[in-house]
């Protein structure tokens, strides 16, 4: 039995000795051949991250991104063959990666990108009930399975948009907190909407099982300004499911 553990270890650790028992019949050394596997593994995973986080890459530049991704790949390789789960761990890594601390918003922008991937693959809504009675205020709302809130003290939607190529990069005049709602709309497009702190609270209360009326009241009490009409339009656009208050549905 050859040493599989040594082979696996040396794939991620460029300084590790070559595993025993390798054979090359023609041409170069086993080192050169093993380097192909090393490169496939490490570069392949870095490429996958670069593809998943284009705005994050644009903010820090290709060289810095690849160096950062390499540290992530070597220290925390994927635990599943489904690579989009690997991407979900990248923002958490950025939170704790000292060289990335210089750019305070970086991990939160990466969170938007991770949420977009997640939203693409999320479940479809079960048959929409929308049995709206007269009593809208008493309705409960289930957000679409693709909906993800990303909270941040930075203007992350503006920064993400500028670096995702959706608008020109321009100096940010007003550096204020932005919360993002990421979701898949009825046309299967992934949307990133900037929402106020009050709307973010409103959405969280709905997720916690509050009725529309309760969630609106609490958001208003906590944040002062709260635009219910806009919040309702956002719920409709993001394919939220409204249902009559049976008391049984609280998710």
């Amino acid at each position: 039995m050859h040493n599989r553990a040594a082979f696996a270890h040396a794939l991620l650790d460029a300084d590790a000795p070559l595993p025993q028992g390798l054979r090359v019949r023609v041409g170069a050394s086993a080192e050169a051949r093993f380097a192909i596997y090393r490169n496939n593994v490490v570069s392949g995973l870095i490429d996958a991250l670069a593809e998943s986080f284009p705005a994050t890459l644009r903010i820090v530049g290709e060289a810095f991104f690849r160096a950062m991704a390499q540290v992530f790949v070597r220290s925390a390789p994927p635990r599943s063959p489904v690579l989009r789960t690997f991407a979900q761990g990248f923002p958490v890594f950025l939170d704790a990666f000292p060289p990335a601390q210089e750019i305070a918003c970086l991990a939160d922008v990466a969170r938007i990108e991770a949420a977009r991937i997640d939203a693409w693959h999320a479940a479809d809504a079960s048959a929409c009930t929308r049995t709206m009675s007269d009593d809208v205020i008493a309705a409960r709302v289930t957000l679409h399975p693709s909906a993800r809130l990303v909270l941040s003290p930075h203007p992350i939607v503006t920064i993400w948009r500028a670096n995702a190529g959706a608008s020109d990069v321009a100096p940010i005049e007003d550096w204020t907190a932005e919360q993002a709602l990421v979701f898949r709309d009825a046309n299967d497009a992934i949307q990133v909407e900037s929402v106020s702190g009050a709307v973010a609270m409103f959405l969280q209360h709905l997720q916690d099982g509050a009725t529309l009326g309760e969630a609106a009241q609490r958001a208003m009490a906590q944040a002062g300004e709260f635009d219910l009409t806009n919040a309702l339009l956002l719920l409709i656009h993001s394919q939220a499911d409204f249902h009559a208050d049976t008391g049984a549905h609280a998710s």
Binding site: A5, A8, L11, P78, R79
Partner: peptide
């Protein structure tokens, strides 16, 4: 081929020795 060892997934098709085991 193999692609996972000790829970880590290497995202590549890695070679095997052709033994009875």
């Amino acid at each position: 081929a193999w692609s996972t060892h000790d829970g880590a997934f290497f995202n590549d098709l890695l070679p095997l020795p052709y033994t009875r085991a």
